[in-house]
């Protein structure tokens, strides 16, 4: 009977409430350690380090610089950077060749074929240095930060599976499912790709 008396409902209720709060706020603080604030400013040394792309011979595939991992791959995982990348896609006229992503004068970015490999560093290199057969170099027009943002975005739209961090549809008329909803997988067989070379990345 004693515990019942101690914990009679009058005292127990606020106690339970407060305990609940403390528990969950504590939980929040724990998860909070893993939070990822938005970065607007990339320090010039960091940008310079990010610009050190290590590419395989022929510019196909490669490894991002160490700092990219030290930063926890922000350009592929931060929704803010991805949506900035989406903005850059239209601001820098990518659509004039690649259309809404399904290609035009330039190759499709959604069909699962990556001429120079599916790694984000290869995409960044394509944007920065350009590629043969018409892809211009944007290294003089975009900052390193912007190139990475755009590369992250382009990688997302052609990804094999949807990720939680993804921009969603544009408000202008769109012709294909938004990046957050469907990865490009449903379009993988839509357009016949340029005949692949074995060193030009895996086929889907």
């Amino acid at each position: 009977m004693m515990p019942g008396k101690v914990l009679n409902s009058n005292v127990a209720q606020p106690l339970v409430t407060i305990l609940f709060f403390l528990l969950l706020v504590g939980l929040a603080a724990l998860i909070g350690l893993a939070r990822q604030p938005r970065q607007y400013r990339t320090d010039p040394p960091v940008a310079a380090a990010l610009n050190q792309l290590r590419l395989m011979p022929g510019g196909i595939g490669g490894a991002p610089p160490e700092i990219y991992f030290a930063l926890d791959r922000p350009y592929e995982t931060s929704a803010y950077d991805l949506s900035q990348g989406k903005r850059l896609y239209s601001w820098f006229g990518c659509a004039s060749c690649h259309g809404d992503g399904r290609g035009g004068a330039g190759p499709s970015l959604l069909d699962g074929w990556w001429l120079y490999g599916p790694s984000v560093v290869a995409i960044a290199a394509s944007i920065r240095d350009g590629r043969p057969r018409g892809m211009p170099a944007f290294g003089s027009r975009m900052t390193t930060d912007q190139i990475w943002q755009l590369a992250g975005y382009v990688k997302t739209i052609g990804a094999y599976s949807a990720s939680l961090a993804a921009p969603s549809r544009n408000d202008d008329k769109h012709t294909r499912p938004a990046e957050n909803r469907a990865p490009a997988a449903i379009l993988f067989n839509e357009a016949p790709p340029v005949p692949p070379r074995s060193d030009q990345g895996p086929s889907p």
Binding site: V25, A28, A29, I31, G32, A34, R35, Q36, P37, R38, A79, Y80, L82, S83, Q84, L164, A165, P167, S168, R169, N170, D171, A178, N180
Partner: peptide, 26 residues
């Protein structure tokens, strides 16, 4: 809020600022 993912669009969340194109993240 603790996760730095709290809404940032005002308590009446006008679109398009809160919409798919401009409200990035969750």
């Amino acid at each position: 809020f603790a996760l730095d993912a709290a809404p940032d669009v005002g308590w009446f969340a006008y679109v398009p600022l809160s919409g798919p194109e401009y409200g990035s993240g969750k």
